[in-house]
Amino acid sequence: MNTPLERREALQQDRQVRYERMVEIRALENKVQDLFDEGLVHGTTHLCLGQEAVAVGVAAAARVTDQVTCTYRGHGVALALGLTPVQLLGEILGREAGSIGGIGGSMHLCDPEIGLMPTFAIVGAGIPVAAGAALTAQVRGTDDAAIAVFGDGSTNIGAFHEALNLAAIWKLPVVFVCENNQYGEYSRIDLTTPVEDIACRAESYAIGGTIVDGQDPDAVAEAVSSALDHARSGGGPTLLELKTYRYAGHSRADTAPYRPDGEFESWYEKDPIVNFGRQLLDEGVLGENGIDEVQATVNARIDAAVELVLDSAPTPVDAMFAHVLAP
């Protein structure tokens, strides 16, 4: 099994790996749902099915020394940044093998080695924190940057507006990546947000705001790269709005009955995995049987990870006392 750093480097260098990682994210999320249905997962989980290109595009563009904050719908971003299936499943299943030893669960992942800051279960909370990570880079004079990945729903919370304003006046090297998946919890965006495009909110803070096709990993990577270049060169923050779609409900209990008929089908025509796979076939990056081969490789990897995690030690009770305070 590759290390998180190796996984990240491979993804940055190779578009086929990006495709494979999207397939992995989807397969893992489906596996999480299966494990849930089998009663093996304690608690809740929020799946990012349909949003794989956002995760992979961001991870392809970010340096490993850039810091990334993301949300409770963060399995995809974490895997794209390099977290291994074992680290992810271990956390969700409460095993020592989890990325923080099984003490956090589905919503709380972290791996500083690949720039994954502790993920946030409070809507909007990661946005100012990313600005703070950018402040560190600015004060220390490195050319690292930070990326906040958050949903459309969080752009209605004060923290979003405060963080954008602060980052703008201080010209912090941060990229605000809004994955607009059309839903905030159980509500369609038009019921909670008076503007159609979140990107226009950048104007209030005199920073760039760009709409990006969030179902195209190349477009995402290019937009994030360009915003990162701008940030690193002292130009300050950018707001990117990645239009995407949440295939699943908000959480395990939500079957999304509020979704209009035909909406899912129309988004599925833009499915990031199907389309990117086709594109790589056309380009010859994937061979004739490439799609099936990738799927088989991924399935084998995930089956092995599930087996390993289910056979591994549950987090011991006394683990709850570790790391409450720094030594």
């Binding site: 304690h42 608690g43 409460g94 099984g102 003490i103 956090g104 669960g105 709380h108 549950p314 987090t315 009770v317 683990a319 709850m320 006392f321 409450v324």
Partner: peptide, 16 residues
Amino acid sequence: APDVPVPFGKELEERY
């Protein structure tokens, strides 16, 4: 409960 954040994991949470 002890002076720790609420842990995840069924056994840990029940003990908490």
